[in-house]
Design a protein around this nucleic acid. Sequence first.
DNA 1: AAGGGACCATTCCTATAGGATTTGTCTATG
DNA 2: CATAGACAAATCCTATAGGAATGGTCCCTT
Lengths: 232, 232
Amino acid sequence: MKLASSRDRAPGRPVSRQVLADHVYEELLAWLMDGRLEPGAAVSIDGTARELDVSPTPVREALARLEHTGMVRRVALKGYRVAPVFTREDFAELMEARLAIEPVNARLACSRITPEDLAALREAVKDLETAPRGPSFVEFRDYLEADERFHKLIAEQSGNQFMLAAYSALGGQVQRFRLFGGVGITDADQAIAEHQAVLDALASGDPEQAAAAMADHVHKVRARAIADAPAD
Amino acid sequence: MKLASSRDRAPGRPVSRQVLADHVYEELLAWLMDGRLEPGAAVSIDGTARELDVSPTPVREALARLEHTGMVRRVALKGYRVAPVFTREDFAELMEARLAIEPVNARLACSRITPEDLAALREAVKDLETAPRGPSFVEFRDYLEADERFHKLIAEQSGNQFMLAAYSALGGQVQRFRLFGGVGITDADQAIAEHQAVLDALASGDPEQAAAAMADHVHKVRARAIADAPAD
DNA sequence: AAGGGACCATTCCTATAGGATTTGTCTATG
DNA sequence: CATAGACAAATCCTATAGGAATGGTCCCTT
């Protein structure tokens, strides 16, 4: 694979304003998000550099940023690895954290949400409905993307940069769990109904109702996952 | 300044297991925490490398990690800058986020806290009492360090890696605000009493009481800051 | 056959070099 | 005097080279 370098850019065009490390970061993030990089797999610096046809320097920078998201972990002198699979306890912790953060986001977003924001949320829910739910990940990739988009939009619309930062610290892990938590997409209809309920509460303008709807959604996600999860 | 390189290490001694980028990260973090780097100041990659007597490569890696904490911000092709000073709105947002996260940490920590943890918390409160509170930052630096230590200990003892991650996403900012929020250390006695109340609640073993004590503390910090803050 | 040590390939880590971009200054011109 | 353009210095960004550590393999010894 060949990434566009800042050198071989048409001279007249507006400057890209994005350096190679940014491209590498986004590329690696995509690999992590859509499951191309499985938990526990080694992410070689030199290897990734060869794969992306860049030097190791920007790869190091991208991985250093990714480490802080918890998606990859570094061991000094040994390199980076994709974070290991979720245990049942990890999942419980993640849901607890989501319960602490996401209802607050919904409550904050409720009082400052704009019609454009509501439209974007409606589109996310609609994408959830229309997305395929096949067994292989390429088939429900769009479903996961819409789910993540819905929750992230609410975090952004909280208007609180720190709540967004807190959610982002979880967001990647949430997405990773959706992929490898063993749940699959067996609960799409119920999940869509819950998303719709959150959306309706936000549209109604009642902050506490929005928070309650979000808390209810996370609670039910947890309950379904516990019911579905394979014994370990 | 000269950092110890992995090359000039005594051959017989146990391996350091820490690379230069880690040293640089910790050094820069210390500079940010104790105010040596003021908000808005440029953090030159090459300059920092010369200052620390290392090559720019590990400095780039350290700054890439720091960027994700919100302490520094990067503009492509222009470099890194220390995040700008807090506005009154930033402060309100930060307190809102702390209210969402820290009481939950206290509640979770309460039911799994060990005698050793309690001892460490008592020591932090004791350090708060004995630390000098002079006007210049070198004089109340230890006070701030003990404050941060207290809150971080509770986040760690929540036993929830994601709540800790969420707090850490805030932690640096909390520390930065303490330095540049204009509050100074005018409320040490009251703050110490509140910390003691949190500690007592944790020791009592009542989770809801611990959460309430922490929420009360954050509320009062906010109230005092708003009362003291200079008009902007 | 099992365990230990030497060797080699791979990978990480740091330094260095040079191209590309930005920024500050200085001069010339309207 | 203000403004535009050119030059120079500083800085960022990427690639490359080589030292250092790790992991695996092979061979030897017990």
